[in-house]
Amino acid sequence: MKFLLIGECREGKLLEYSYELFGFASQAGAETAMLLVGEEGTLPGYGGTVYLADAGKYGEYNPDLHKRLVQAVVERERPDYVVFMHTSYGWDLAPRVAALLKAPQVSEVVALAEGGGFERPCLSQKMRQVVKPQGTPVVLTLQGGAFPALVPGGTPQVQPVDAAGEGKVEFLGYEAAARKGVDLTKAEVIVSVGRGVGKKENIPVIAELARVLGGEVGASRPVVDSGWMDAGNQVGVTGQTVSPKLYVACGISGAIQHLAGMKKSGFIVAINKDKDAPIAGVADVLVVADVMQFVPALTAKLVK
């Protein structure tokens, strides 16, 4: 079985999570080759073949050309699987490659299942589905963090790869992350507001608990998107990554993108009216209650 792994470069650097592709391939016991649109300096620590397309020529983001590069390598390597990370690069490019190769695609794989199946989350991570792609090659995207990062070691044999054509999307540039507001990474206690808190007017109740515990207030993304709190308070893949001694998740369901930012916390308390909410998977304590009833009661008792 052969896997073609698609690495990712951004702003001249190999993205660390590209090593999760090797972790996945090793779990599957597959032979590997990698394609990277990058530069000599972005090569992974890996002794296999790396097909290197020049990022100066093809751009780090140019999906219409990148799909042709993948196709060119697929023709040479004849892999059984073409594997991407499920990231802004991977979910953008993978369906284009699948369409071009007339290949089945399975998105956001979290585990290998028996008989050539793949396990993936569905229903906002609450449930799991096993699916079986029909035909080869198969295009896969992997959920970040589902497979361990593995640095195989060694120096790659580099093969240049090229493709012709024009891209339909013109890349204009990157914009750095806005890093303003509270630095949650240094907080020992974080009490985070989720959509389950109900409305902006309820936030002071949560903030009061944070104050009593001597901590900061965090937020899930919808809370920021709907303007209840500043972007600087957001925890998760597109916000801050935190590891306080105590993290209290108030009305937060536990989407993977949120968990990525807080699962390393020392102790996690979740307050949720839904016993099945995925946050239970990382929590040390799950309080099944209405957050707007429980939090004031807890704060009152702590103040006493």
Binding site: C122, Q125, V131, Q134, G135, V288
Partner: peptide
């Protein structure tokens, strides 16, 4: 191109104490 074979709840990873 992709056939479903199974649907279930995820294996409970955590060992959260549930307070009801």
């Amino acid at each position: 191109r992709v056939a479903p074979v199974e649907f279930r709840a995820p294996a409970r990873k955590g060992s959260a104490v549930v307070l009801e």
